[in-house]
Structure formats: structure tokens, C-alpha cells
Design a protein around this nucleic acid. Structure first.
Lengths: 350, 350
DNA sequence: GTGAAAGCGCTAACAG
DNA sequence: CTGTTAGCGCTTTCAC
């Protein structure tokens, strides 16, 4: 409690107090071996007494490390905090970063204007790497990140990754999950199965649509309605579908939020779920799927786990592999692309 | 596209290319006046050609500025991304920071373990100031922030602020809003009005409870049920209240989420809203209040605006007042404490 | 093992 | 107006 007025103590001050050189203090602070025990102890005490905390700017200047990782969200902020998906993924990321002592720096963008600022930040040497989510077609972000010269990992397969240059990403098996969902509806004897899609400028939505089509062969196009992953959108889509195809008896919605919207409209119209119309969602967002009426059958993906994997992939790219002696590979991995499994979770809606 | 392999160009390189000194380049880059136009132009061209971006670590080392602001959220991450309240506030913060070219650095904490890391980060000289939310009684965060020697602003009145040392904060008029809500129920002729509270270790919840009590004088204590601001909690609370007081005819819930839970239980029990039981919430979370059945009468607060004010207050504390020539004061302000107005929004539930 | 010295890339006096 | 100079606080060879 006897800190000098305001100025933070420097290495110099600690060194003076401990009666050693700056170099020695630095060694102790950075956990280097090869310092006599007694000295190390003296230094540590001085550090405590002075309340010394290393100045990161000075440290980064020489080490070129920042112990911080940027997470760039190229999504209107409203959606980030409205769709629990982001929260869960971010949570996984946050935990894994914490475990590696890297600070999470969340960069919110709400439009191209913000990209310049983000670009400056990324290129300005604040972070060791970047994670980015839910990119849309033609998104400028990958270019910006590349220009910043940072290692990066994407959440969700980017559009160009097939052609493009080996950008690592983590995604779930959207195609397979959708297939399972639709097959389940088929196994229930449904024959007029509609699909409420996500925004088709994202690969996750496209892949789910593909899975739907694969099972059904060449479904009536009027049974497919594009939507935007929101509940309100799901309501609109369901209304449109019922208008066009009053005889439908099954719905596969591309995420739980839009499925919840669909359920709502179905009930509003007096249609029973699952008797009249069976509904399956995607994501297994617990707060949604368990509380809809009836509870939602859906496809689970390990969202938090995907977040963690993004971090591991990124750190590996920085040469900071897992601390454990594990083999340097993760399940579902293929050359920097990690695709995780999905499983169908049966509840009452189908 | 002709960047040297990997190493980022430095001021030195730009200076060499432009045939001037580092100082001059620095002046141009930092928008200083007093550089001959022709030279400035040469420098700018060199900057572009080399793709130069200033190294922030080096800059911070001397300026002691970081152009970044930490937002510390001392709340289980799940709630941040589940309760739209945070999202909105963060959005206001994000926009206002962007307008002042300060980067938002979001620090998530999920327990005391994380506090040490956050403390190190804050004290490590990464940010110019800190914003913190929804502190609970005896939270260690304020101490940590103070120890880091950073200017800070809190969202929501902290517990100790009355006694404590002039910590600026932004809050809405919880007491007045609650009063209006309950008065409205009274004006509807309700006589057995229950209250579902928030977590009583937060001042917002306490103030709303006080407002409720003020209007009702000395209400039957069995009509008050403590809750946690979640929908599931609201359901539980409503069940408990109905158990104890089947004759209740009005409910004031401390936030919209718990009101939504209450509505759900009411409907489940076959009670009509508002005929049998009138319900009022708090927050005016549009995604909730407009979509409940029936739509929720509630108390609006300008959440996004509060976020913005937190930033303004903080920047002012850093001597970076508003760029405009406005008088340096904001509405509802009293010595660093800003309390914003609330208004009742009538919908169908009461 | 420990200390002395040389920068990391930038800004901010201070001269000119 | 522009260049020279001196550090910001830290890590890191390199001698001792």
C-alpha cells in the first residue's frame, strides 16, 4: 500500500530494491531457470512490495508477442447477442484462450466502415492471431486479416476455402447433420417435408440445404423457403410455406431459432406438432430447444468445443502447440480443416 | 504487393524512402500540422507503397496511450449472451468507442480465477480505461481496477458508491421506473400485486423492489419472490407465488425475461392476462416484450444510450472530452453519477 | 550465475 | 518547417 503516487514501478525500480540488475529481475519475472534461489526470492519480494507489473508495450516491442488474440465478428452486433450460438462459441474460445494465457480481444464490426479500424488494429501489432466467424460471401475480412500478416482461423467453412489458399477453419458437419434430420422426418413417414434455410451466402446454410436435397432427391422447390436464422424470419418463412403448400407435414429448419418461429406460427394456425406437422431444428440451443412448445427435436453440434478447437488450431499455427505431449492432431482434422460430428437429439416435435 | 517478405516496414524505412527524417514521417502519420505540403505528400506515398502501419507497442511505450478501452464483464458468460441487456449496452459502448477511435477490448470472466488474469491485463498497460458491469455485492473487481490505476466507469450503481470514493457510474432510475410500473397496476384496480425481484445483491434489483414497496406501503411479504433475472427463474417464481397467493391479480417482474417466464406459467395455469392477472416487466427488451403472449407492458430504459454515456464519462475522465464544443455535462448527471429516465410502455399485458 | 550494453520502433523536446 | 537527439521499459546477447 506504499506505492509511489501514480507512476508504476519499472524493472529498474525492482532491481534497485532487490539489489540486483535489471537482467536478473527480468529472468525471475519470466520464470527463467538459472537464477540462484536466494536471489530469486529477494526479487520476488521486491516485486510484491512494489506491486510491479511488467509493461506489456515495452515487452511486446522486443518480443513481438502480445499474449492476446483477436476475435473478429463480422455480424451486426444485434445478432451476436441475440443468437446464443455466438455466445457459446465465444465461450469455448474464451476458456481455451484463458488456459493459454492469451487475452481475448473482441472486435465488433457492424459494417465496412469498421473494417478499416479493425484492419489498423490487427496490423498494429496488438495481437498474436485472429479468429473470425460467420463470414459471408465476398467478405473483405479475410483479405484484411491476411494483409495484417496474422495467423488466423475461421469459424465455419469460408466460401473460398476450397479454391483458396489453405485457410484453416473449424466447422461442424452441416451436410451430414441436415441429412440425419431429414432422414428422421422421412422415417416418421413424412412425405411433404419443407426446409427453412439460413442465409445462403453462408456455407453452413448452403450445406444444410444440400443435405436436405440429398435425402429428398429433387424436392418440390416450393417447399424451400430462404430465411435468415432469426426467429422472426422463421415465422415469416413458415407463413409463406403454409400459404404455398398447405399440405406439408414436416419442416426442417436450418437452425433452432427459425424452428421456434415456425412452431409458433404452426400453433397459431391450429396445426398440431408433431401430429400434423413434424419439426426438426439445428444447433440444439438448449435455451431455445428445450423451451419451445413442444420441445424441439434438433441436431446437436458441439459449439463450445468448436470454439476451443479454433483456438488450438491457431496456437498451433503460432508454434505454441498444446502444452501436453499429445500428438499434434485433433479429431476430424484434415490438413487444418476440422469438421466435427453432429448428432440428432430427439424431443417431442418430431 | 511488393512488400518485403515478412518484416513490417518501420518509420525508418518510410523516412528513407521519402528522403526525410523519421520525425517528419511521424508528424505526417499523426496528422500534425506544419509539414510542407509537398513533403507530406511524398511521405504519404511512401507509407502507401510500403504498406506501413505504426507499431502500437512502440507508440504506447512513449505516449502511454493505447487507444483501447477494456470492458470487463463479471458475469457468467452464458448470461451475457443470453440476456439481451448486455448486448444492447455493449452495442452502445462499442459505437461510442468507435466514434472516438478507441478499440473495445472485451474481457470475459467467469470466476475469481479469471480475476488475476484480468488484473494483470489491466495493470499491464494495454488500455486507457475500463468499463465494468453489473457488479454484485462485495465484488473484487472495483478493487482490482483501482489497483491497476485506471480510470473507470461502472454500469449500474455499485453497492458501495454512496459511501465509497466518487466512482462514476451510469444507471437508470430503477426506483422511479418500478414506482411507475406498480402505480400503473394500481390504476388498473389491482389490489394483490406481486413482485418478482432480481438478484438482491445488485442495486438495480434492490431499487426496483424499493419502488414497489414505496407504492404499496407495506405489502404482504408473501407477494414478493426473489428471482435471478432469467426466464426459467421467472417461471419458478411465478409458480411459488401462485402457490402462496392464488388470489393475486397483478405481477410486477423486475425484468422482461422473468416476466416472460411468469406469463408462461400463468397461461399454463389457465389464467388470463391481463383479465385475471395483469403483468408488467422492466427493460423493454423488444425481442422479448413484443413477442410474449400477450405483448408485455414494461418500463423502458435507454440501454444503448447508457452504454454510450459510460464511454463519454470515461473519456472525459481521461481528458478526452467530447469533440464538440458542448458544455461538459450530460442529462441526469450529478457529479459523475448519471441517472437516466425511464418510461412506461403500454402493451397488452397490463 | 549475473551484469553491462545494445537495441525493439516510436514520439517529443530541442536546435537550427 | 525539419532534422537531431534522447529516451519510453523491457529482453537479450555477450562478457565476466
Amino acid at each position: 500500500m506504499s506505492e509511489p503516487t501514480d507512476a508504476r514501478p519499472t524493472l529498474e525500480a525492482v532491481a534497485a530494491r532487490a539489489g540486483v540488475s535489471r537482467a536478473t529481475v527480468s529472468r525471475v519475472v519470466n520464470g527463467s531457470t538459472g537464477v540462484r534461489k536466494s536471489l530469486a526470492e529477494r526479487v520476488r519480494r521486491a516485486v510484491d512490495e512494489l506491486g510491479y507489473v511488467p509493461n506489456q508495450a515495452a515487452r511486446s516491442l522486443v518480443t513481438r508477442r502480445h499474449d492476446a488474440t483477436a476475435v473478429v465478428v463480422a455480424e451486426p452486433e444485434t445478432r451476436i447477442f441475440t443468437d446464443p450460438f455466438f455466445g457459446l462459441q465465444l465461450r469455448g474460445i474464451s476458456k481455451e484462450l484463458a488456459a493459454h494465457d492469451s487475452q481475448l480481444v473482441l472486435l465488433l464490426t457492424e459494417g465496412p466502415d469498421d473494417y478499416a479500424r479493425v484492419g489498423r488494429y490487427l496490423a498494429g501489432g496488438h495481437v498474436d492471431g485472429a479468429l473470425a466467424f460467420s463470414l459471408h460471401l465476398d467478405d473483405a475480412l479475410p483479405g484484411i486479416i491476411r494483409a495484417a500478416g496474422l495467423p488466423a482461423v475461421f469459424g465455419g467453412r469460408p466460401y473460398w476455402s476450397d479454391g483458396g489458399g489453405g485457410i484453416p477453419y473449424v466447422d461442424c458437419d452441416n451436410h451430414g447433420g441436415a441429412r440425419d434430420a431429414v432422414r428422421h422426418l422421412v422415417s416418421l413417414g413424412r412425405t411433404r417435408i419443407a426446409h427453412i434455410t439460413g442465409p445462403l451466402d453462408q456455407t453452413s446454410a448452403v450445406d444444410r440445404l444440400d443435405g436436405y436435397r440429398e435425402v429428398l432427391g429433387d424436392p418440390d422447390p416450393r417447399l424451400t423457403q430462404e430465411c435468415d436464422f432469426t426467429q422472426a424470419g422463421g415465422e415469416r418463412a413458415m407463413r409463406a410455406l403454409l400459404e404455398r403448400c398447405p399440405d406439408l407435414d414436416g419442416v426442417f429448419a436450418a437452425n433452432d431459432l427459425s424452428a421456434a418461429g415456425a412452431l409458433r406460427v404452426l400453433r397459431e394456425r391450429g396445426l398440431r406438432v408433431p401430429e400434423d406437422v413434424a419439426v426438426v431444428g439445428f444447433d440444439n440451443m438448449l435455451h431455445v430447444a428445450e423451451h419451445t412448445d413442444p420441445p424441439l427435436t434438433t441436431v446437436r453440434q458441439n459449439i463450445e468445443g468448436m470454439g476451443r478447437m479454433m483456438v488450438r488450431l491457431l496456437l498451433r499455427g503460432q508454434g505454441r502447440g498444446p502444452d501436453t505431449g499429445n500428438p499434434d492432431e485433433m479429431p476430424g482434422e484434415d490438413d487444418g480443416r476440422v469438421v466435427t460430428q453432429t448428432t440428432l437429439v430427439r424431443r417431442a416435435s418430431a
